[in-house]
Each structure stands twice: as C-alpha cells, then as structure tokens.
C-alpha cells in the first residue's frame, strides 16, 4: 500500500513543479514527473510479488507472471508522453526566440 502512496506523492511533486515553477523548462520537467508517476502507478498495479516478466518462451509454463496488460498500456502512454514533451520543447525554443526569456511570468501578452 505504501508504494502506491509514494506514487501519489511523486504525482503531487510533479504537480507542484508545474504550478509553482517559473522557468518553462522546469515546467516541462514537472509534467514529465507527473506522467511518469502515473505510469509507475499503472505498472505497479499489475505487479505481484516474485512475479516473472510476462514473456512466453519455448517450453515454458505460464506461471507466476505479472499482468502484461498494464505494461503494454504504459508503453503506449510513454509514447504519447514523448510526443507531448517533444512538442513542448519545440514550443519552448520558439517562445525563447520571440520573448527572449524562459520566465513564464514575463510571457504574458494574452490578457483579459
């Protein structure tokens, strides 16, 4: 149980990073922490104690395997996370070109 709570703590650290930090790059890192906390949680759900990797090889019995489904899903979620992170880094570079700063409090031309 404590391991799941630690995942949620990690999630909250990432959320804090997204909400409180002023540097764009730090915000992107915070988002990464949030995503990985969720992914870790998802993998841990499928884990069982002394479980084996869920790979079927020749002449092997299906015994004591961990749940493979969360792992496949997490792989998909990681790919999505990659796409979002790359997109945001590209946007951050462009923002730096336009505004000359990474400080989110100085990037505020949109108001109202």
């Amino acid at each position: 149980m404590s391991i799941y709570i630690l995942c949620l703590v990690l999630f909250c650290i990432g959320l804090y990073c997204v909400l409180r930090k002023r540097n764009i790059i730090k915000i992107i890192i915070g988002l990464g922490i949030v995503e990985y906390a969720v992914n870790l949680f998802f993998v841990l759900i499928g884990y069982q104690r002394y479980g084996r990797a869920p790979i079927l090889a020749k002449e092997q019995k299906i015994l004591n395997m961990v749940d493979p489904l969360p792992q496949a899903l997490v792989l998909t979620a990681i790919v999505i996370g990659l796409a979002v992170t790359v997109f945001m880094v590209a946007i951050a570079i462009r923002l730096y070109e336009k505004y000359g700063t990474f400080d989110i409090t100085k990037i505020k031309r949109l108001k109202g």
Binding site: V86, V89, A90, I93, R94, Y96, E97
Partner: peptide, 16 residues
Amino acid sequence: AIFVALILFKNLKKKE
C-alpha cells in the same frame, strides 16, 4: 526528424 528539427532551431537562433 524531430532531432534534426530541434537542431535546426538552435542554428537559426545563432544566426540572429
């Protein structure tokens, strides 16, 4: 392609 695109950004900035 993503890697190349990010590198090209960097070069663009240096020119300015």
